[in-house]
Design a protein around this nucleic acid. Structure first.
Lengths: 197, 197
DNA sequence: GTCTATACCGAGATAGAC
DNA sequence: GTCTATCTCGGTATAGAC
């Protein structure tokens, strides 16, 4: 076996937590999926919370990593391309069936027990996201690709686009979804370009 | 006591199911919140599933009712006003802390046990929603308030707007939220008005 | 590290007195 | 309709042999 038992446990638990939530997932199921017995789990994790939190941690790290990829190539493209790329990057994250699913579940319905911890994490990543977004828009204004006016409505609108697509990934098949992403982004950009109030 | 015990049980259970989900809510909590003992619940509901489903049923009925209000006054206003009203109507539903919350939780993360039943319900209401939307847009095109072109991208974009605001209600305080709604809708309308591709 | 056996608890649900 | 008492089941977690 190439991966450690500990990793295999986390892998299986990720699937189950993502699909059935914290309370909906029993350690028995996790163990069965891994192919071991329940008590063996305790050789790798202190308890259920410990397992859950270790998965959440990896989740947030993966997300941050993904966001940061964008930051690297920010001077080489048009504003429209940068925003589209940024959006696609996030959308790509939701597309990952399990990781994206756990992200959504955790963000929208954090288990009561971990609520404050989880919210701290998300606030941090959101601030990071907004920084990147502001930067793209500002440069777009300097380059004259976006009208120079208050950024706030545009950022609000872009977040609404992101959040809308975030939800829609639940409802549509992948090809349908990709079409929705295109439609919504083109619509967004059309209004962004003109500006006005 | 003005309301029946059965109603009070449903009221309490609604709060708990909305906040903690099906598995996260115990009948003990429900009973305590109502001020009775657990076994007394069984005089009013066959079992936990029965209670849960009866609440879901009321939820869907309330939602449909709300949507239908719109349908009544559809000839008296501009297209922009109609779309705005339609959006506000749905947003108003999410604003109800508990009912909207249960709706979101149920829609996005249906309990496995009820998944097929729930999906049927939602598909039905979505079809209803789309009908109304198509009608508003079509009339807008006839009146010349919207460019005459394929409706599909516009509808997709409007749904994305709705879904985005659906999620955002989680993150922002009510006054902040109202501002987001305005920003996002105005942005949406700006692009809708011009059309083009 | 993994297993069997077991402790302990809280869940959903029922029986039967009042 | 509501209660106390009780049943059964499945959950988390631990003890201790291998």
């Amino acid at each position: 076996m190439s991966t450690s038992t500990s990793e295999r446990i986390k892998h299986s638990a990720l699937q189950l937590f993502a699909q059935k939530g914290y309370y909906g997932t029993s350690l028995n199921e996790v163990a069965t999926m891994v192919g071991i017995k329940k008590p063996s789990l305790y050789a790798h994790f202190k308890n259920k919370d410990d397992l859950y939190l270790s998965i959440l941690k990896e989740l947030m790290d993966t997300f941050i990593e993904r966001i940061n990829i964008d930051a690297s190539l920010r001077n080489q493209h048009s504003t429209k391309e940068l925003l589209n790329r940024f959006l696609k990057n996030m959308v790509g994250f939701w597309k990952d069936e399990t990781l994206g699913l756990l992200y959504k579940r955790t963000l929208l319905f954090p288990e009561e027990h971990f609520r404050t911890y989880i919210q701290e994490q998300f606030i941090e990543t959101e601030a990071h996201t907004t920084d990147i977004l502001r930067d793209i828009i500002q440069k777009g204004q300097l380059k004259g690709e976006l009208p120079t006016q208050s950024m706030e409505p545009l950022i609000d609108s872009f977040y609404c686009l992101i959040d809308g697509l975030f939800v829609q990934r639940f409802f549509y098949s992948l090809p349908e979804y990709d079409k929705k992403v295109e439609h919504a982004f083109e619509h967004f950009w059309k209004a962004a370009e003109i500006g006005g109030n």
